[in-house]
Computed example of a mutant assay.
Amino acid sequence: MLKIKDFLIIFVLLSFQTFMAQSIEVFGKVQSKLGVESIHVINKTAQVFTITNEKGEFTINVSINDSLVFSSIQHKLKEIVISKDDISNKAILVKLDEQINELDEVIVGKVLTGNLLEDIANIDGNPPINFFDVGIPGYTGKIATQSERRLSEAGEFKPKMLLGLLGGGVPLNPILNGISGRTKMLKNRVKIETKETLMNTIKARLSKDFFVSNPLDKGLRMDFFYFCADDENFIRSCKNKTDFEILAFLRRKYKQYLENLETGND
């Protein structure tokens, strides 16, 4: 007959085995100097996997002593073993190291000595030839977009052109395009393209600094710039303006945008 002491030992062992086999969902986060989105997280033991979100966060089912593997092109492969503390805390933090691919040294061209005059003398090559060098007239201004070229070809209709029809000295294209509305349509298209180009230029150049002091969810930032571009004063306020003037315009629109968001939520 089993003694009470033996019974307790068996009970503890069975409880421990049950605890060891228990699978729970844990929250994890990956840290790295590089991007932490879409990193593969593989539970080799349980044969389940997931990927991290844009913040490096993930959830996955694990048990004690399960092996988790973290895999990414940008990072070194890392494997960890789930401990009792990980199960108790239901959270793990993993730091990944950058994957550095060293290439063999390749020397392209001549080796520079650091002496400017000697290096210039040793460099072979001729400067590129342009149309001025061969006496051909050329255009050096801004290249027109397809819509701008079409608008130029369509011409602009003016009422006084109708008088010139009697003498046959006026091209029909501007008149026909004006009456049919094609010229107006092309003007609107050029205006939209101008807005789009200006908006993307401002976004690429100023968005990083702007959102440091004017926080906005990443999912709303593109919508915010379209909100700015829809303003009737957008081109006049931002085209050929200093960064200070553009930022002042963006701050005014930022306040309006937040007010619209609050009104929509209500």
Rank of each mutant, 00 (worst) to 15 (best):
F132E: 09
V190T: 07
F132L: 05
S152V: 15
N130A: 10
A121N: 13
L117A: 13
N130F: 11
N177S: 12
I179F: 02
N130K: 07
V108L: 12
N177L: 00
E105P: 15
A121K: 13
E156Q: 05
Q146C: 07
V94R: 09
R149N: 11
I175F: 00
M161T: 13
S147T: 13
G125Y: 00
I107D: 09
L162V: 14
E98K: 15
D124H: 09
V134M: 01
M185S: 10
R150D: 07
N115C: 03
V111I: 15
P137C: 01
I123G: 00
R150G: 04
R189V: 02
E118G: 00
R150F: 05
D124W: 00
L166E: 11
N122G: 13
G114H: 06
K195W: 00
I107V: 14
G178N: 04
L117C: 01
M161N: 05
L103Q: 12
G167A: 12
P128I: 13
L166Q: 08
S147A: 10
F131N: 11
L176I: 03
G168E: 01
A121W: 01
I123V: 14
V108H: 10
A91T: 14
K158C: 02
L163G: 07
I136F: 06
L93E: 14
S88Y: 07
G114A: 11
A91K: 15
G178M: 03
N122T: 11
V170I: 15
N126K: 10
K195E: 05
P127T: 13
G181N: 08
K110W: 09
E193T: 06
E98R: 15
G109S: 13
I143A: 11
S180E: 03
L163C: 12
V111N: 04
G169A: 03
G138W: 06
A91I: 15
K160N: 08
S152N: 04
N173M: 06
E98N: 13
A144D: 12
T194S: 05
G167F: 09
I120C: 07
G155S: 05
G164N: 07
Y139I: 12
I107S: 04
T140Y: 09
G155K: 01
A154P: 03
R150I: 03
